[in-house]
């Protein structure tokens, strides 16, 4: 065989894989989203979901959750990665320990936090045993939407901060130490060095981390499902409901398209805001 075909032959299996399991379903979702139940092309699926009483709450909850979780995780991850980068010994060990929650599936994470916060959970038993409460309390019910929201926030932070952390730790490792030394010589204290040197030079990593984390936040599902159930609708949960409970693939696809649109908007936003000018890279 002619040598110039080798690269194409070698790449063919993965291209085929992507075409079958990614591009095809992707197109299929679009087709379904824009095809009404009677077979006409149009926006009827979107009309269905937009007029549904759960749409606005699920959109609001999803955005609010991302708005709270992502900035908190960002600050924590920046702080933690700075500390880890300064460590001389045991750095890898600490990093491995901090990334353990990443290896836990989000369903399992939800179960863990349910086991803690449930009426018969660890927190109740603990507070009861030390006498803070007289009887086990049920926090995760429809009367306490703020507690449910907080519980989801805590669980999400616990579960997924490490994804930002690993990206930032490797990003900080790429910054040559001479920049810090030069800044130090020319009068910058550690706070100024963080704002004038570390964070600007970390922009590419911050960009990657934020895009990844925000898109994942829009897809939040299992943790919310377990801790909030129907008391806290989110976009992904609604997609699931329409697909499996209401058996309406068109509406579910429309939800998926909404999530995709949100993701694209935020990705473009991050690309724009954290843009590094040409020639200004390390």
């Amino acid at each position: 065989m002619n040598k110039k075909y080798y690269p194409y032959v070698l790449i063919a299996p993965s291209v085929l894989f992507l075409l079958i399991f990614f591009v095809y379903p992707f197109i299929e979702v679009f087709v379904q989203a824009f095809t009404s139940s009677d077979g006409h092309v149009g926006l009827s699926n979107f009309e269905n979901i937009f007029t549904d009483y759960n749409f606005l709450p699920s959109l609001k909850n999803t955005l609010l959750l991302a708005l709270v979780v992502v900035p908190v995780q960002l600050c924590m991850a920046v702080g933690m990665s700075l500390m880890i980068s300064k460590m001389k010994k045991g750095r890898d060990t600490v990093l491995y320990i901090l990334t353990i929650p990443l290896g836990v599936s989000d369903l399992a994470a939800g179960i863990i936090w349910l086991a803690i916060l449930d009426q018969n959970g660890f927190l109740n038993s603990f507070l009861f045993s030390i006498g803070v409460i007289d009887q086990p309390e049920s926090w995760l019910n429809y009367q306490n939407p703020i507690i449910i929201f907080t519980a989801v926030v805590v669980a999400e932070i616990w579960r997924a901060t490490a994804i930002l952390l690993v990206i930032l730790v490797s990003g900080i490792g790429l910054i040559p130490k001479e920049y810090y030394e030069a800044a130090e010589i020319f009068g910058a204290n550690s706070w100024v060095r963080l704002w004038k040197v570390t964070l600007p030079l970390l922009r590419p990593s911050l960009q990657t981390a934020l895009i990844l984390r925000t898109l994942l936040a829009f897809e939040v599902f299992a943790v919310v499902m377990l801790l909030g159930g129907s008391n806290m609708p989110v976009l992904m949960g609604e997609t699931f409901n329409w697909a499996f409970n209401y058996q309406d693939a068109g509406a579910a696809s429309a939800y998926a398209v909404v999530i995709l649109a949100l993701s694209i908007v935020f990705t473009l936003f991050y690309l724009r805001v954290l843009r590094v000018p040409k020639g200004a890279r390390i």
């Binding site: 040559p176 001479e178 920049y179 800044a183 040197v197 030079l201």
Partner: peptide
């Protein structure tokens, strides 16, 4: 500095 340490982002 030997490798200049000119800040790339400025």
């Amino acid at each position: 500095f030997q490798n200049y340490a000119v800040f790339p982002h400025m």
